[in-house]
Design a protein around this nucleic acid. Structure first.
Length: 659
RNA sequence: GCUGCUGUAGCUCAGAGGUAGAGCACUCCCUUGGUAAGGGAGAGGUCGAGAGUUCAAUUCUCUCCAGCAGCACCA
């Protein structure tokens, strides 16, 4: 029999009969390893202990100590164990797919009855029984026809479809534990008992389309999380609770920032506190843009469909636009807005984006090449009819304001404008507390307009720009818009979540469609390029991100209520008002709290309200003309004179770009 | 939009086929208290909207609206 030589991580190698399995190798080393082993890595590939090795290879055996492999296998086996548990409880359920995801797994089922939250408990119990049985996992490679017939006979049409989608040269693996069987590429554990029975939890039930296609049947998905030990599970569940505490919808209510109500779904009612954050951020962006060479403009909300037809949006995005029909024959006195005089009805759309209007501004008057690059910025209020299921607090809304701008320029200005924008954005993200961000570079898609030479040039310009400013990027081939490549900017928040906010897109198409031209040095009319770019994206969403990033404890300059001056006894009320007046005169957002409440009560209330600084004053402070300073989140207080605290808080209230 | 769940006081939530309850918040009174909830009293609800079943519906059924989770979508 042929021999294979297996090389271990320590550099030693041993010789075995060809077709040896890692399980046999483990047994050859020690009985305890044979028992503890969960899988192997063979020539870099994660390998089932039962799979034969037919050629010389490097080999490493894994146990539960190897975190990456252990989590992968535990989660994968749990997906199968859960599917088995479900089919044992409800035999008419059809199984589909069940992959490993971050922290756990899911499995999609087809069953006429919906699962209920109570069912999760039943399933979990059954899963624990299966784990306790310690059923051996067995695998075989089947040929295609046999597998298809097997699933057809067993009434599992989804599996048949999956087999059809597997490339012909890949082996079809069947896996068993107990009497239960599934199609799976593996690898798996040795037996169900290797799964820690106390370190997983079924989390939720949700609908999911078969193969992610909204035209296909909706299946029922069950999500679970799993780890190597119960401490890790507990830590994960604690982390979820921490994340929930940051929810901007909850903090928005607690901090009295905004509300939403059903008469205006997906639109924000900003309260004084929230609007303070909004305008402070907007003032900041306005200064940044002015300094960055942008000219600010403002364009209409309600625009005739003719413009949207010309821009191409009417064709593509009509269903996502708010349409406003107006009977222009109404005389004002006997108005009935709903009575439609067809001949005189004008169809408008609320603008879902600003670019067509910006081209209209560009098109006024003849533009010279000397005017370029022309950077037109707008805090553009847009409305999009988002599907109801997409709405989420102020993060995904139907009415929002973009920090939008369009740069009209020549082809050879693209690279410099791109580099300039990346620096602009990096500086703003840094100042707003997001020093880390990632650039994704999306290149030409399959369906596109324009010549190959033009795509080559523009993609090259973007790539050179990124390099020129010394940044890294990841390539997203084929993800660009049909008219041009783009850069997307992803920032990382305090708990490691990634948000796409900024974007930079090259567009030669819209100027073409809307007839934008400039007079070049040669005296002839030329077509400008248009660069779409946004830094924050939308104010609504970005403020949501800020709230969650800071857990409501916004940096002092952005905090809606910066200081509360609280009296300890009513004797101090006059002095409280004096302190507030001084701070307000210095541009600090300060409020007095002279209510008939104890200082404990006031401290608690304003701490819960995330006020960054509480100044407590009693008889002593009045006497000495000082304040007792308490910072949010700190138990320790300190003393300062009135002049000192006004000076230091004034400095702190200064936005980062003005320091 | 799809699947499932939810909708009761400003907030968080109990409750039941016979028209409602708690805690916090709110108002008033007592209390002037030194850094995360002092005490007492009071007021507050067309039980998301509409229809149906019933002697009787906030409770059961249906439709709609909104929210939540996930999926799909995101110019």
């Amino acid at each position: 029999m042929a021999q294979v030589s297996l090389t271990f991580p320590d550099g030693n190698s041993r010789s075995y009969d060809a077709g040896v399995t890692p399980a046999q190798v483990a047994a050859d080393i020690s009985t305890s390893l044979a028992k503890k082993a969960i899988s192997a890595t063979v020539d870099g590939k994660h390998w089932d202990l039962q799979w034969p090795i037919e050629a010389d290879a490097s080999i490493a055996l894994h146990t539960l100590q190897d975190e990456a492999q252990a989590n992968e296998l535990i989660r994968h086996d749990l997906a199968h164990i859960m599917a088995r548990a479900v089919q044992e409880i409800w035999p008419d359920t059809k199984v589909t797919i069940g992959p490993v995801i971050e922290n756990g797994w899911y499995y999609d089922f087809d069953r006429s009855e919906p699962f209920t939250p109570e069912d999760l408990g039943l399933i979990e119990k059954k899963m624990k029984e299966i784990i306790n049985k310690r059923d051996a996992v067995r695998t075989e490679v089947w040929d295609r026809a046999r597998a298809v017939k097997h699933y057809e006979d067993n009434g599992e049409p989804y599996k048949v479809e999956l087999i059809d989608a597997i490339p012909g040269d890949e082996p079809l693996r069947m896996y068993w534990h107990g009497d239960w069987q599934d199609l799976c590429r593996g690898p798996h554990l040795q037996n169900t008992g290797q799964v820690p029975g106390d370190s997983f939890k079924l989390m939720s039930i949700a609908g999911a389309y078969w193969r992610g296609d909204s035209k296909r049947p909706m299946l029922q998905r069950i999500y679970g999380v799993a780890f190597r030990n119960k401490e890790q599970l507990k830590a994960h569940l604690t982390m979820l609770e921490e994340a929930a505490k940051r929810d901007h919808r909850k903090l928005g209510r607690e901090m009295d920032l905004f509300h939403m109500q059903e008469e205006a779904p997906g639109q924000v009612f900003w309260h004084p506190n929230g609007w303070t954050v909004y305008t402070t951020l907007q003032d900041y962006m306005r200064r940044k843009q002015r300094a960055g060479g942008y000219r600010e403009i403002n364009t209409p909300q309600v625009v005739d469909r003719k413009l949207w037809e010309a821009s191409g949006h009417w064709d593509k995005y009509q269903h996502h636009m708010f349409i406003v029909e107006v009977d222009e024959s109404r005389d004002g006195e006997n108005d009935d807005a709903s009575a439609k005089n067809r001949e005189q009805t004008r169809i408008n759309a609320l603008k879902p984006m600003n670019c067509p209007c910006h081209v209209q501004v560009f098109n006024q008057g003849l533009k010279s090449y000397r005017d370029l690059p022309l950077r037109l910025a707008e805090f553009g209020s847009c409305n999009r009819f988002e599907p109801s299921g997409a709405l989420h607090g102020i993060m995904r809304v139907r009415g929002f304001t973009q920090d939008d701008a369009h740069i009209f320029c020549t082809e050879d200005q693209i690279q410099a404008e791109c580099a300039r924008f990346i620096d602009f954005l990096a500086n703003i993200y840094e100042e707003l507390g997001f020093p880390e961000f990632e650039i994704k570079f999306a290149t030409r898609p399959e369906k596109r307009v324009g010549t190959e030479e033009s795509w080559d040039y523009v993609e090259g310009a973007l790539e050179n720009a990124i390099k020129a400013v010394g940044r890294e990027y990841t390539l997203e081939p084929g993800d660009g818009a049909f008219y041009g490549p783009k850069l997307d900017f992803y920032l990382t928040d305090a708990i490691g979540r990634v948000w796409q906010c900024g974007t930079f897109q090259v567009d030669p198409n819209l100027p073409e469609r809307l007839g934008a031209t400039y007079i070049a040095a040669d005296g002839a009319k030329h077509r400008p390029f248009m660069l779409h770019r946004a830094t924050l994206g939308s104010f609504e969403r970005f403020i949501g991100i800020l709230i969650e990033n800071w857990e409501g404890k916004l940096p002092f300059w952005l905090a809606p209520r910066q200081v509360v001056v609280a009296s300890i006894t009513s004797e101090a009320d006059d002095y409280v008002n004096e302190v507030v007046t001084k701070l307000a005169a210095a541009g600090v957002r300060a409020e007095a709290d002279v209510r008939n409440e104890k200082i404990n009560y006031k401290v608690r209330e304003h701490s819960v309200g995330k006020v960054p600084v509480i100044l407590a004053v009693g008889a002593r402070e009045v006497e000495e003309r000082t304040v007792s300073v308490r910072r949010l989140g700190e138990k320790q207080t300190s003393m300062a004179t009135l002049d000192e605290i006004v000076a230091s808080l004034t400095a702190e209230a200064t936005p980062p770009d003005l320091r």
